[in-house]
């Protein structure tokens, strides 16, 4: 088979549009000043691509990009690079999540090139939850990079065209670089400073962990604006529907980095239909977040409630008639 036949299903490797770092649809939407929506896919415990497309379907209607988690909570599922590659080939826009927990610098830099070659154009750099949180607590934690040094490394690969060793990359990857932030957990006063460090390292967009405590998030954003960070990075606030008061309490004590205020749990508890109330709360939070200066979008994480995402976004009205459909990259 000839090379051109091999390459027939791959988009041309062209330079990104003027003023952009990648071909990412998410980058395009954000730079155009539109309120962006991203959402997290529940990765299958299966080797069947049909399960990936099934999981992506409810999110594709409303999401400018779909995040493929990298063994979140240290639980083993289909890999982020596999999901990102499958979905990207099928025309969905994806965010390839890289956690520093499971792979060292040699593996990660290689995967970054592999993902870019498959057409992936958004990367989210994460530290990763400790192995103790997951289903295989005896695993060896790697943490060769941290999220910040990872960001700087991928930026160097993209902008300087070299590996961390200085060895040349003949075709550097075009990637829109993202990082996470968690405004609602300690040390509160240093979280904005940490965000500044991530921006300094190369972050171009931020997806936060769940925001259930709006006053806390508003305080964080006020400091972010004081530091001028909202002008340097696109911030997408993390949201998600709570299934019930019991589920909220469980999440709070078992999933690292989740803060749910007691008042919210009380409200859920008193509601006749806790699921519907959780959804209503989520819509309200999105609408309130929309009004906060410096926020560029929302990131919806609805674990096992993906079927609700489309309705939540429609009810919140944040897309303002825009319809993110399937497009390349």
């Amino acid at each position: 088979m000839s090379l051109s036949k091999d390459l027939k299903n791959f988009p041309a490797y062209a330079p990104p549009p003027e003023g952009h770092v990648s071909h990412s649809r998410l980058e395009r939407v954000l730079r155009a000043g539109k309120f962006a929506v991203t959402s997290e896919l529940n990765p299958p415990d299966s080797a069947d691509p049909a399960d990936v497309f099934e999981a992506a379907r409810p999110l594709a209607e409303i999401a400018d990009a779909i995040n493929a988690t990298d063994a979140s909570g240290a639980n083993c599922h289909m890999s982020s690079i596999g999901i990102s590659a499958l979905l990207t080939r099928a025309g969905y826009s994806t965010v390839y999540q890289i956690s520093c927990r499971d792979r060292n610098r040699i593996a990660i830099q290689g995967d970054v090139l592999g993902a870019a070659a498959m057409g992936v154009s958004n990367v989210l750099c994460l530290t990763g939850d400790g192995v103790g949180a997951g289903d295989q607590p005896g695993a060896k934690p790697v943490f060769d990079f941290d999220s910040v040094s990872l960001l700087r490394t991928i930026r160097t690969m993209r902008d300087e065209g070299v590996f961390l060793s200085g060895r040349k990359i003949t075709r550097p990857p075009h990637l829109f670089l993202g990082a996470a932030e968690n405004p609602c957990i300690p040390p509160y006063e240093w979280r904005p400073e940490r965000l500044a460090k991530k921006v300094e390292a190369g972050a171009e967009f931020i997806q936060t962990n769940y925001i259930y405590d709006l006053p806390l998030f508003e305080r964080f954003m006020a400091r972010v604006r004081d530091l001028g960070l909202d002008k340097k990075v696109f911030i997408l606030a993390g949201v998600g529907p709570l299934a019930s008061a019991r589920a909220a309490r469980w999440m709070r004590s078992n999933v690292p980095g989740i803060h749910v205020p007691d008042a919210l749990i009380d409200r859920l508890e008193k509601a006749p239909d806790q699921g519907a109330e959780g959804k209503r709360i989520c819509v309200e939070i999105i609408q309130q977040i929309r009004e906060i200066a410096g926020v560029s979008g929302v990131h919806v994480m609805a674990y096992r409630r993906e079927h609700l995402v489309s309705e939540i976004i429609a009810e919140s009205g944040v897309l303002a008639g825009r319809s993110p459909r399937r497009t390349r990259s």
Binding site: F143, D146, S147, V148, E181, N182, I185, W190, N209, G257
Partner: peptide
């Protein structure tokens, strides 16, 4: 730091500023 982070805290810090791990 159990994750040997060199650039700041992770996103898993517990209430009261205690370590996730």
């Amino acid at each position: 730091c159990p994750k040997e982070l060199r650039n700041g805290p992770c996103g898993g810090v517990r209430p009261g500023g205690f370590c996730e791990v």
